[in-house]
Structure formats: C-alpha cells, structure tokens
Design a protein around this nucleic acid. Sequence first.
DNA 1: ATCAACGCGTTTTTT
DNA 2: ACGCGTTGAT
Length: 790
Amino acid sequence: MQNRPNALPAADGPSASITARALGALRRDSDGYLDGLNPEQRLAVETTEGPILVLAGAGTGKTRVLTTRIAHLISTGRARPFDILAVTFTNKAAREMKHRIGTLIGPAGEGMPWLGTFHAIGTKILRRHAELVGLKSDFTILGTDDQLRLMKQVLADQNIDEKRWPARSLSHLIDGWKNRGLTPDQVPPGEATSFAFGKGGALYTAYQARLATLNAVDFGDLLLLCLKLWRDNTDILESYQDRFRYILVDEYQDTNVAQYLWLRLLAQKRKNVACVGDDDQSIYGWRGAEVDNILRFEHDFPGATVVRLERNYRSTGHILAAASGLIAKNESRLGKTLRTEDEPGEPVTVTGAWDSEEEARLLAEAIESLQSKKHPLSEIAVLVRISAQMREIEDRFVQLGLPYRVIGGPRFYERAEIRDALAYLRVTMNVSDDLAFERIVNTPKRGLGDATLQQLHTFGRAERVPLLVAARRLCETDELKPKVRQTLRALTESFSRWARLVESQPHSEVAQTILEESGYTEMWQKDRSADAAGRLENLKEFVRSMEEFPDMAAFLEHVSLVMEASEAEGAERVSLMTLHAAKGLEFDTVFLPGWEDGLFPNQRALDESGRAGLEEERRLAHVGLTRARKRAKLSFAVNRRIHGLWSSTIPSRFIDELPAASVDVVEAPAHYSAGASRFDRNPQPFGSSYGTPGWQRAQERTQERTNANSGGRGFGASPGRRGVSSGPRQIEGELIAKSTGTPSAFSEGQRVFHTKFGPGNVAAVDGNKLTVDFDKAGRKMVLESFVQPA
DNA sequence: ATCAACGCGTTTTTT
DNA sequence: ACGCGTTGAT
C-alpha cells in the first residue's frame, strides 16, 4: 500500500503552513464534519495535496468523501469555493453534490461556480473565449436531433446516398472521434477513409464547418473546443490551471479520452487532482468511457496516492459476498474486496421460470407478498438488462394493479411537443437558428412544404442570411405564390413581434403567447389521439418550469444541457429500470430478472467487444447486485421471445459464478414446476450433460434443505413448444388464437382498440377490413391487423 | 395532405 | 413482434 497520511511536508509552499493547518484542525473539531469517517475515508479527505485516486466500491460512502473533501478544503482555508473545480457526469450528481455541500458547511458552499458536469463547465469556459475558437459567445448547443438533421444536410451536400451511408452512422463515427479528443485534422488516416469510400474525414470537416456557420456546437465540441482553446492559447490554459487550485472528479471510471485530456491539461501544473471512481462499476464503455483511464491513473500521475474504500455500508453479507465473488472473475481490475460489518442476512435467491411471462408473474407475486408484509413499494426495484424486458413486467403490474414507475423513460425534453416548443423559443431568441426554424416552419401545418423550404434554402444560401431572414426578404418579391407569401409573411411578422415581446414581458408569458398565437397549442387541442392530452399537460409544465429561470436565455441554456424530467418523487411505487439507470441508486429489495446467456451477458456486447464486453457485462451484474440493501432476487426464464421468435435460453453464466454459499435456489410454486431439471443449463431433450457447474451444486444443497423432489429429467417437451408445463392460462389461448389467424376474428358490435385511434366499436366486418366507430376519432375503415380486441 | 403499406433495425444512455 | 420513418397510392 502506498497510502500514507498527509503528514509529509506539503509540496505547495507557504499556503499549507503549520499554523494554517493547526487552525484548520481547530475549526475542524468544532464543525465535526470529519466525525464518523472511517480511516480510509478520512485519508481520502485529508490527503489534499498531489494526485489521489480514491477507489470507492459500491456503497462505501463515495459521495460523502467527495463532499467532505470539498468542505475540508474550504474550512481549512486551503481553498475558497471558487478555487475548486468539481466535475460530475450528470446534472443529478452535480445537484446532489451541491446540496450535500450546502448541508455540510452551510451557505459558504453556495458559491461553488465550478461545480458541474463536464459539459456545463466546458460551456461556461467556451462562452468566455468563444471568438478564439471561431464562435460567438451566444452559440447554440445542438441536441441529438438537430445534430442528425445537420448530418443529413451534410450528406446531401456531398451527394452521398443516405440509404447506404446513414446519417446515424456518420454521427456515431464523428461522436467517437470527438470522444477520443480528435479534431478533423487529427483523425488517423486509416479511420478517416472508413466511411463512404474514404469521405469520413472530409465529412467531419464539412460538418464542423456547417456548425461554425450556424454558430453552433454539439455536445462533443463542448470538451473538444476547450482542448483546442487551451492548446492554441497557452496563456489562457495557464490562467485556468492557476484558477483551479484543487480539482475533483466524480465517477472517474466513466471518463472518455477527451475528458481525460481535458483534466490532464488543467491538472498539469498544480497536480492537485482527486479522482473518485470504481473500476468495477464502469459500464459505459459503449459510449466512449475508457476503463483504462482509471486503471492507468498511477501511471498518468506519478506518485499518486491510492486509497481504497472497501467498507460497505449498504448491503448485507450475503449480497456483498455474491457481488464480490462475481466481480472477482474479472481480470482487468485494480482489485478491491468489499466488506461489511452488517449481518449475513438473506442469501441471494435464484429462481428459474418456464418462460419470461411466468418469470414476470412470479416476480409480481413476490412483490405482492412483500407488500403484504408491509415492505414499502418505494424500497423495491426491478432492474432489467434491456428496456424490451420491461413490457411484459409492466403488463403484469398493470393487471395486478401494482403501482410502478419507470425510471429513465423518454426524457421530458426529448418529447416531440417539448422540442417543438423549444424550437419556437429558439427562433424567437435567435433569428439565425435555422435548425429550429426548419423544425417548426410547418408545424402546425400551414401549407409551407418542401418546395417552399427549398426556395428559402436557395435564397438564404445565395444571400448568406438565415432562413427566417430569407423568408422575410422573399416576401418582398414576387417569387412566391400569393398564398404562400401571405402565410410566410404572417409567420415572420409573428416572430418579430414575439422577439419584441421578450423585451417587455415576463418570459413564461411570452412563451405562452407564442404557443397560442402560432397555433401550436390549438394543434394538439384538435388532435383526438390518445396522448394529445398528455402532450398539452407537458406543454403546461414546460411553461411553468420556465418561471424558475431569470430570463429566456438562461432557460434555453439550461435546457440544452439538462435533459432530465423533474419527476414527482416519493410516491409509493415499485421502481422499474434498466441496470444502467440504476447506478447510484439503492433499494431494500432488488429483483434481477432475465439472467440468461445472450440477454445477460448480452450477446451483442460479447460479439462486439469480446472479453472486454463480457467483463463490462459482469460489472453491470455487479452494479445490479450491489443496489440491494437486504434482498437480491435473481431469476431467469428457459424460454423467451427474442425479436418475436420463441427461443430456448440457458441460464446466465454469471449465475454459476456466484459463490454457492451465499445463494439459495428457490423453486417456483409447485404447480408450475416441471421438476428440478428445468434449471439445466443445457435444456435439450434428455439434457446432454455437459459440465455440471457450481450453481447446480447450490441447487442440490437447497434441495437437501427443502427436501424437494428432484426426479425430473430433460424437458419432456421440445423447447419451442409452449404451454406444456405452465398450466392452463388464458393468455396462451389468446396467443394461439392470434397466431392461427382465423379470417374473421372480429364481429359486429365488438369492442376493439386501435393503436392510433384508440378504443371503438366494430360497425361492420368485410373480410379482413373493419369499419369501426372510434370513441374519439369517429368512423374509420381499418385493417383487422391494426386493431386488437379490447 | 393523409393514411396504409413497406422496410429496417433492434443494448445499455448522458450531455 | 414491434415500433419507427419513409414511400406510395389516393
């Protein structure tokens, strides 16, 4: 261990004098914020000088260390709030940190101007020096959708077939380069040729040029342009190096190369950089995170102190043992062993189900049983590998009337109506926001179609003016048809009027006016589809949320960086989310369904990234297990529908990797059971027995304990055939009826549901065509395959 | 302009 | 299977 207390002379000159530290110690005692830290945590807080890596295992008090460290720096007088740079990945994490610092040292922590996400801080820096990287300081930040639209334009400009070379791929490619800190001229020649017959690099250049003319940046640029700024202007770099006396980084294992370079440039001079993270929780490799950054820390920052936080304050012994045993199978890790002083608690359970539907049912039943034992639903979570698993589980919850909420669903600001509303505001605030203008020029429909837009583009490009200005000018000419000219003039005049309104009225009222006068609200009011009401609701919430900001510009800035919904908390509900969304959360009871090879570990991760992919999947499993305080319940299904096809699956290899002593195999209720062999990892008929790995031994152990009958052998039914062992259930009848496809499954007067038109009654049947009177949409002729019996 | 039919992709998700 | 965006017919 190279950990040493910071009793050695501080390399940093007189600022850390003995008296200063003695005074600090004095204040420290009175504040008492160090009380209750364990020795490792304390070391992590008090080692203020020089590079330090804090390896904080799950539930070891990571955030506490981070916030206490900041409090310590401030209250010992080593730094003032604005001397500290503290970066996080998500706005949520930044908010939480601000809040906790506030409770720790009171209002003194309020003014931490440099606590925020990489992107927020990058934005702040770029706005100050925009002209040095070819921007104006009021540049717009493009979201993913704008980025894609721009990408399409670039491809069209270069006459590249978008079918063959989709904009999405190009977007990925360029994002990948930006994640690695590469500007167009730095892209390795071999890679630049990999898209559209060698045009990859040229397209990147063209895309950047388009961004520049729009005075816009994408998310990657927020970091990349900082790098450029600092490399080209050493004096500015130095001013930031001096400004940030202490640097703290949260979730260091999630940093990508660009972020690493960004940090390294800033930390180079003072080297007071504290990175907190956990290599065992690195689960974002697929979006550019480099586990290597954390694995290489000691190499990158020679003489770094490494502190391991291994005492877990969250989970019981069995849960921790299961998680530790599993993660120990990974080779690329720095190595930590979590320990707890908590009791062993309940073993982790493993349950096999015949199919995913039975799995969902067992899961819901287990939750109901917990509920009846007075376990709060808010302390129960279901964590799935992929979102597609959610549907069946939700169906079950809905049937049982179990209240649940999905965490990390479609984000508020990504909803179409919100993006439309934002586009109106953006154009109002900035006439040259062409992308926003294009989005709403014909929303609601005003008869301004492609042809008109094309004209605007041509004119705008020729005159080098934004689309809105082009529209204004074109209205002065005779080049437009009278009708088009009139609507277009009305629109441009509206925007001018709204822009003036911004000067004189509260911004949320202006927004309200814009939405009404533009006909946007009306568009949704007229819309009879099922979700229109929800959209109007969202718009209302959107306008309301603006009031929290001083002005329109501040609001737009916030929105472009913060893509989160403010969801009502605290309701008594089960939480349902992906494993990724669960990072950082904890619950008393955690259900982990779908532990099957191919699903988890995910086949695609395996195919694309091989061993590294498997290890990342294993880390994901580790993250899942360590979310649980008291109970972790794994399950798998032996049959699952994948892309619509039923296929048989085998239990996840991760199950075998769990330490048997901490795992209980739980039988599904008897009437569904086809015998113990349901758990065979090789579910061919008459189960050819390949190895009989550890977890079956665990099963035997349980069987002894529960005296269960283990008489079965093989499946008795071919894997594809359903319903043999799962008992009579109505759902299956329905499925069979659907798949056998009788010609006239519907009859007059029947109640049906159409995905677009909602519920209605069948008025007439004609072969596979139905005439339906919909409750909201009126009488329509629809194909049978578009409706379901309701 | 609207709606049905066709085709495609389909892990995870933040900023 | 399913949900999407795009195409093609009215």
